[in-house]
């Protein structure tokens, strides 16, 4: 069983392992893709491409290692490459170039929503979710990414550093800035919900 080195898997073995170890990550992976692209079709393509690459390189994947982090890394890199090709999306530049612009609160156009909507519990929950989603979607993609990885998927800083290929210190500072940015966008809303300071 300890054939870790010169492993030559049969196609059946490979397919079985691929399905058992990588396909269970489909749900978080699709969610990540969707939060990056903000488009269902793009997310679909990105996930397919990620699995295709993962299959191609599956021989290099060591059983029992962090499949989720590995797939997230592939997807993130595919996204960057894909996005560089699609020059029609100039809005998605590196956060350092745009973060200065995010101090304004011009994104919060729908400020009247909370007060005019029926306050049944379920719709309030939906409302909070919608508000969080729109605040998050308005962040630069690098900020959005660290928040998704950390708060939605529960990756550790070390895993995030590996997925994003940046030092842990950068993970920390980026996360810090991302949260400040998100906080600003949500503050107005939070106050309307009674979470004022």
């Amino acid at each position: 069983m300890s054939d870790q080195t010169g492993k030559q898997l049969s196609k059946e073995e490979k397919d079985a392992r691929f399905e058992a170890e990588l396909l269970p990550v489909l749900d978080p992976l699709y969610n990540f893709a969707y939060r990056l692209t903000l488009d269902e079709d793009d997310a679909n393509d990105l996930v397919q491409e990620t699995y295709l690459k993962a299959y191609r390189f599956f021989d290099y994947f060591e059983q029992g290692t962090n499949a989720k982090a590995w797939l997230f890394r592939i997807l993130k890199n595919s996204f960057i490459n894909e996005f560089r090709k699609k020059s029609k999306q100039p809005a998605k530049v590196d956060y350092s170039e745009v973060e200065g612009y995010y101090n304004t609160d011009d994104v919060e156009g729908e400020s009247g929503v909370a007060s005019t909507t029926d306050m049944r519990t379920e719709s309030v929950q939906d409302l909070i979710g919608d508000e969080v989603a729109s605040a998050l979607n308005a962040l630069p993609v690098d900020f959005r990414t660290v928040i998704i990885l950390c708060d939605l998927e529960g990756f550790t800083y070390e895993e995030m550093a590996k997925i994003l290929d940046i030092p842990i210190g950068t993970v920390r500072s980026r996360l810090h800035r991302a949260r400040n940015s998100l906080k600003e966008k949500l503050e107005k809303y939070a106050k309307s919900m009674g979470y004022n300071s």
Partner: peptide, 9 residues
């Protein structure tokens, strides 16, 4: 807010 309220697609 993110962990508990962001809807999964």
């Amino acid at each position: 807010l993110v962990t508990g309220h962001l809807k999964r697609v």
